[in-house]
């Protein structure tokens, strides 16, 4: 081969091939934009929409094209019974996407909801990957009885429908929080959904990690290191971990996509994020009652979820190609 002046490390090579993939650039940009938007939620609420999206505002009015309009409008039915919140005005200062059944600005709640949804799903993904890496590396590296025990445990968890598992854990903890010894989590804490979602997806992420570790353990460079007299510790830290890290990185956006979907499902069933806090799932739940009259309340957060999850999946695919990770992972849950 022709002499090359500089050799690039695997990370540099991966980064370069990523930067040449339009799908990777596009999905990363979309995710960045979403993070910036939800980070700007307080600014939007205070300075653009001029509302408090956590205060019920049934008697309020908004100023639209110079005229004051009540947020809750009388129904058009024959008896003029009940009130319907205002629909999308497409004006940022006046309930851009309309109001929900309590007169709160949906657009502002959407941004605040995005903060919780993104925070929960990213933290859950991180925690899940850490747990799964521990389980997968232990099972794959030590083998034997450790592997059998951990794998059986994963199999049992895997046999229960993921959403039912998450729902059971949520219901048991949602009313009283969680107290295990010194650790105490309040029932409205975001830590609850984070831990529950992270836990239920551990088998999903642990399996490919274990497979990767097993194949690495039997690889020739590990054999070579062992023949050179390297300690198990050294082999684990210097030979196995760096090579597993690509699998972990590929898994991260995929697990986050699953976590976001699970979070929205739990919140939709009112056992995830607790009121008055919002997440995209709770807003869909709020919008369920208005689905035929003010569909945007439910459609907007759903679109946000689809866009985010799609971007994460595309990013995961691009990472898989760039880092050349072969393990196939799959998901389930409906």
């Amino acid at each position: 081969m022709t002499a090359r002046t500089r050799t690039h490390g695997p990370w540099a090579v991966a980064l370069r091939s990523l930067s040449r993939m339009p799908s990777a650039i596009a999905s990363a940009s979309v995710l960045l934009l979403l993070v910036i938007l939800s980070a700007g939620a307080p600014f939007y609420a205070a300075h653009i929409a001029h509302t408090d999206p956590f205060e019920s505002d049934v008697a309020g009015t908004i100023t639209l094209h110079g005229a004051d309009i009540p947020v809750m409008q009388p129904n058009n039915n024959r008896l003029h019974l009940g009130l319907t919140p205002i629909g999308p005005t497409w004006v940022p200062s006046a309930d851009l996407l309309g109001a929900d059944s309590q007169g709160r600005d949906v657009a502002a709640r959407l941004l605040y909801g995005g903060r919780n949804s993104l925070l929960i799903s990213s933290c859950a993904a991180l925690l899940c990957i850490v747990l799964a890496a521990t389980v997968g590396i232990c099972a794959g590296f030590f083998g034997g009885i450790v592997d059998i025990l951990l794998s059986r445990m994963m199999d049992i968890m895997w046999a229960i429908p993921v959403y039912l598992f998450a729902i059971s854990l949520s219901i048991v903890t949602v009313s009283h929080g969680l107290r295990i010894g010194p650790i105490s989590i309040r029932s409205d804490s975001l830590l609850l959904p984070i831990c529950i979602i992270a836990l239920v997806y551990v088998p999903y992420a642990a399996r490919p990690i274990r497979g990767r570790v097993m194949s690495l353990r039997q690889s020739e460079f590990v054999l070579a290191a062992r023949c050179l007299g390297a300690s198990r510790r050294r082999i684990l830290l210097r030979d196995i971990l760096p090579n597993v890290s690509t699998t972990l990185i590929v898994l991260a956006p995929l697990v986050m996509a699953l976590a976001l979907l699970a979070e929205s499902a739990l919140s939709f069933l009112s056992i995830g994020v607790q009121a008055p806090a919002a997440s995209w799932g709770t807003i869909i739940q709020d919008g369920q009652g208005l689905i035929y009259t003010r569909p945007w309340v439910a459609i907007a957060p759903g679109l946000a979820i689809v866009i985010t999850v799609l971007a994460l999946n595309v990013l995961g695919d691009a990472l898989r190609d760039a880092l050349d990770v072969r393990e196939t992972s799959r998901r389930s849950g409906a």
Partner: peptide
């Protein structure tokens, strides 16, 4: 296919209801 994987099923159901039951 990727879009299909990315849609929350309960939301898709809501939208399907909106379209077929109302709009």
């Amino acid at each position: 296919g990727l879009v299909g994987i990315s849609i929350p099923v309960f939301w898709l159901g809501e939208v399907a209801n909106l379209i077929t039951q109302s709009r």
